[in-house]
Design a protein around this nucleic acid. Structure first.
Length: 279
DNA sequence: CGTGCGGCCTGAATGC
DNA sequence: TGCATTCAGGCCGCAC
């Protein structure tokens, strides 16, 4: 599923591909995914808008438009954008046809290309805000891990009583870290997912901060993880799934100590970990 | 106020 | 083989 590295990959690909383009027409097929304003208003508000920039904040893609407006999209579990350019259009593979089945909204651009939002589970969301509304909306979220100083991270996490796994995945505390990268970071830091955040030592938290940066940066370099349905804007998979250490590896041997990797449920989420390496 | 859990969805995997 | 059930999970909203 898309987490910070996957959304970052989407943002940088789209930034290079569609900045300067104008949205000519919007076709939506699942109105419930459009959260603000009403779907018809959302669509008509976007038609004619020029795309100035595409960036990431938390797991949201932020499309900056002319007229001081911003479209925010969240991929949730299975959402991703696919950019079909005119020259690529004619070669429609089976995989692409399958993708089309899950296209929930299409943005027709002024160069003949179509930006589609594909989402099997329809959990994804789209919103159109004024710039001010968008900043207020995003302002409710916790800080970005990649630009968070170690000291800030330590004070942020150590004030939490909940289990560390749950805290790392709470976007009100810190954004962008989902189930994959929280498992990976906790493994690298040697911390058991059920440890209470406020029981962790300052040294442990500093180490955790360091490995979070490390794992996120590595995943960005590898263009994300394609464990379930994630694809980039060209429909290609990321590579981090081949590099992952514990996530989804229940029953396999730990790379460090060969102990069988276990799985528990923490706050309703599956957590994979090594009981020998993580205390 | 902090915490925990149900619900949204659908395809893949599993169970009988 | 085929049908039914379970699982996956980010985030919100609601109950305690």
């Amino acid at each position: 599923m898309p987490e910070l590295p996957e959304v970052e990959t989407m943002a940088s690909d789209l930034r290079g591909a569609i900045c300067g383009r104008k949205i000519e027409r919007v076709k939506f097929f699942v109105p419930a995914m459009i959260k603000y304003p009403a779907p018809e208003k959302f669509a008509s508000g976007l038609e004619g808008a020029k795309i100035l920039d595409v960036s990431r904040r938390a797991k949201y893609l932020r499309f900056e438009l002319d007229g001081e407006r911003v479209m925010l999209t969240h991929p949730k579990m299975t959402g991703h954008f696919l950019l079909v350019t005119k020259t690529r259009k004619h070669k429609s593979t089976e995989a692409q046809k399958q993708e089309n089945k899950y296209t929930r909204i299409n943005f027709q651009l002024d160069d003949g290309s179509v930006l589609g939002f594909s989402d099997i589970r329809k959990f994804g969301t789209l919103r159109l805000f004024s710039k001010k509304e968008a900043e207020e909306f995003l302002g409710e979220l916790g800080p970005e891990p990649l630009s968070l100083e170690a000291g800030k991270f330590v004070s942020l996490i150590s004030s939490e009583k909940r289990k560390i796994k749950q805290v790392l995945m709470d976007p009100a505390v810190i954004v962008g870290i989902g189930n994959i990268y929280s498992d990976e970071a906790l493994y690298l830091a040697g911390i058991h997912p059920e440890r209470r955040a406020n029981d962790l030592s300052s040294a442990e938290l500093k180490s955790l901060h360091r490995v979070i940066l490390k794992v996120l940066k590595k995943a960005i370099r590898l263009r994300g993880s394609s464990i379930n349905n994630y694809r980039d804007t060209r429909g290609e998979k990321g590579e981090y799934q081949n590099a992952r250490l514990v996530y989804g590896r229940r029953g396999e041997a730990c790379g460090k100590c060969s102990t069988v990797i276990g799985r528990i449920v923490v706050a309703g989420r599956s957590a994979c970990f090594c009981s020998e390496c993580q205390k």
